[in-house]
Nucleic acid binder design. Sequence first.
DNA 1: TCGTTTTTGTTAAACGTTTACTTTATAAGT
DNA 2: ACTTATAAAGTAAACGTTTAACAAAAACGA
Lengths: 327, 327
Amino acid sequence: MKAKITDVAKMAGVSIATVSHVINGTRYVSDNTRKKVEKAIRALDYSPNISARSFKTGRRNLIGYVAPDIGNRFFALILEEIEDTLSLHGYNLVVVNTREDYDREIAGLKLLTSGIADGIIIASTFQNYTEIQPYLPEDFPVVQIDRLPAGYVGDSVRVSTFAAVKAAVADLIAEGYTRIGYIASISRLSSTVERDQGYRRALEEAGIPLDPALVMQGDARSRSGYDCMKKLVDAGVNAVFISNSVMAGGAMSYLDNCGLQIGRDIQVVSMRDYEWHRFQKEAVRTIEQPAKEMARLAAQQVVERIENPQLPGRETILRPTYHKAGA
Amino acid sequence: MKAKITDVAKMAGVSIATVSHVINGTRYVSDNTRKKVEKAIRALDYSPNISARSFKTGRRNLIGYVAPDIGNRFFALILEEIEDTLSLHGYNLVVVNTREDYDREIAGLKLLTSGIADGIIIASTFQNYTEIQPYLPEDFPVVQIDRLPAGYVGDSVRVSTFAAVKAAVADLIAEGYTRIGYIASISRLSSTVERDQGYRRALEEAGIPLDPALVMQGDARSRSGYDCMKKLVDAGVNAVFISNSVMAGGAMSYLDNCGLQIGRDIQVVSMRDYEWHRFQKEAVRTIEQPAKEMARLAAQQVVERIENPQLPGRETILRPTYHKAGA
DNA sequence: TCGTTTTTGTTAAACGTTTACTTTATAAGT
DNA sequence: ACTTATAAAGTAAACGTTTAACAAAAACGA
């Protein structure tokens, strides 16, 4: 039978209150009694019942991470960094993978807020905050990461890609490329919307009319990157902007297959969500998101909110890096 | 103030016991009272306090996943599949990333077994089970995945690569390749040991003496794959077996850099821990581990053990697939 | 009709902590 | 010596469930 606090108290000849205070450092305990208690703890191999403690204190030291696709290296990277940062603060991580599914996300939120987690970091698949708000109790610590559902006000950390996308496309235009294709990601996401706007604005400012035949709607999967690229090549593009690295993988597979060399036959600008080895040497231009930094900040932010609930909401916006050389 | 079970009972005009039974279905409740209770639950937007329940029942419905490197796509893939499978059984996942660090692994185990989790799935970084045994309480549900610390007896799921590695190397020999290099992964791991043996045995059976200059000790990181490959090329290999896909990435970068074409200038056989797009078209031969299958089985196994503690320990061994065409 | 079983529901005791409140012992001030 | 302050530790009440033990009412068998 596992030892309880009463066993320790009995053995050390003190009250359970004293034992508790020794463990938590919540009150001064004389050196003498402290030593007795610590000895008893060791002797009995006692460790507090976490469930009982959580129940009593209302703190669980668990943070939920609600991600749309853990299989995507971008979100896996964020997971890793969140776990790392949280562990420094004494928190652990519960993962919910929604697979971009509304029901799964809602179920995850219900669960996490029902007493599992002290806070949530979420990259929501919903377009509007009102759709998830009912499942987030008032004042429940939440940090939105990467994506920002419309109407949300509160803690968030994301990367603003509008300017970088616009600049990259403008750069292509300046070099004389005019038939610039675009493979868009899931359209309801704020991150996608921003990139849409960057692409459109660059064309607009250069006085190039938007050709709907050059804009492909993808679904963030490799396969759709492949298919969209095929259509764009058929439509005769000489440059393309790809909104997400998973699709970029597929798109580049297609280019490879039909012998088109990037940098020579076609220019490719892609979002780069994480380090990729093999693509580097190719002349792909990338817009790199600081995923780790984002994750670290989100983790810190959720911890700060938990420990200081009356803190004002913070919207943290990071800038991506444009790699023209493909390095 | 969040509603409690007493509020629901009061509103419905029944006892808290009845409410509890309605919620958990632990006893027959007449249609009439059930409806009253359900109505009150909705009216008050009541949901049970999970902490209180966990405390009382001793069940937390959380499973710990202790992984050596979540940043590695192999373990990320396993994570995803574990999460998926567990959610089907009503469990959630707590992730601990050890980064192949002994202390982190021990800290994680201590934590998870102290009342956070009902069970653990672990890919241990330790060579010997005796080193982690003290931190796993007797009868605590544990499933070892991918790696099997020496001396462990109990639930485990892994892939046996000895035969496949041996066959792949023998295949190279049969084709006339004689200077076959080997880039090994972290030497203390059971998975590495098996591959070592496969490589050695194939040479042995062909009567080829082992040349220590052709055996490189890597550390499972891309960088070391690159460096080891460099040394092997300098040593004049015409074929190589690489023990892990992360290192394979680095190794192939090096081959690329010095213009060596796989399949023509050098043969490469690599463990393939997950799907890789770009490598496929190259003539790399791969030994593919059924990572998802492994994860699914491990998750099922830990759930079964939790729900039926007197089940005998099961050692599940899966077979990898050898892809000669590189497909 | 009267005991017996079945159905439906209640009472109250746990579960193992934390923590507000109280107590005792010792030191300090007069 | 007598109050007062302070240091150190103890007492006991919560926290919100689940569940064993019990009770009342209804149904049933003879």
